[in-house]
Simulated assay, not measured.
Amino acid sequence: MHRTAIPLLTACLLTPLAWATPPLPEWRESDGYLIGVVVQYQGQTYRALQSHTAQKGANWNPASTPALWQLHHGLVQRCAPWQAGYSYALGDQIRFEGDYYRARQAHTAHKGTEWQPPRVPALWQPIQQCEAVTPIPPGNTDTINGIKVPPNPGAAGRKTLAGIDADQDGVRDDVQRFLAQEVGQHPARFKYAMEMARITQLEILSASGNDREKARGLFNQWRLANSCFHDTFSDSTEDYEWRLKFSKKNAALISNTPERISANKKGDELVGGMMFHSPLEYQCD
Rank of each mutant, 00 (worst) to 15 (best):
D142W: 14
K148H: 14
Y192K: 05
Y192T: 07
A193D: 04
T134K: 14
V183R: 00
M196G: 08
G163W: 01
P187W: 09
I164T: 08
T134A: 15
D142L: 14
Q181I: 12
V175P: 00
K191Y: 12
L123S: 03
G163R: 00
V175E: 03
N152Y: 13
A166S: 13
F178C: 01
P135Q: 07
R158N: 11
Q129Y: 14
L179E: 00
A122Y: 08
T141G: 11
Q168H: 15
P151T: 11
N152K: 13
I144R: 01
P150T: 04
G154T: 05
P153Q: 04
K159M: 15
R177P: 03
L123F: 05
I127W: 05
Q181G: 13
P153Y: 07
C130L: 04
P153M: 05
M196Y: 03
G170A: 05
R172A: 10
I136V: 14
A162L: 10
A122L: 12
G157M: 06
I127M: 09
V183S: 00
G146V: 06
D174K: 07
D167Y: 05
L179Y: 03
W124K: 05
Q129N: 12
V171N: 00
P138F: 11
F190T: 02
P137K: 04
G139A: 06
F190Y: 13
F178Y: 10
I127D: 00
P187T: 02
N152A: 13
T143R: 12
Y192C: 03
V149F: 01
W124A: 02
V149K: 00
C130G: 03
T134N: 14
I127T: 01
T143F: 14
L123R: 08
A193Y: 00
D142V: 11
P151S: 12
N140P: 10
P150H: 07
R158V: 08
N152T: 11
Q185S: 09
F190L: 13
L123D: 02
A155R: 10
K191D: 10
G184S: 01
V171Q: 03
G163K: 00
A155T: 12
E182Q: 14
M194H: 06
Y192I: 04
V149T: 05
P153F: 03
I164E: 10
P150G: 03
Q181V: 10
A155M: 11
W124Y: 04
K148L: 14
D173Q: 02
Q128I: 14
I136R: 12
V133N: 11
T143Y: 13
F178W: 09
Q125P: 04
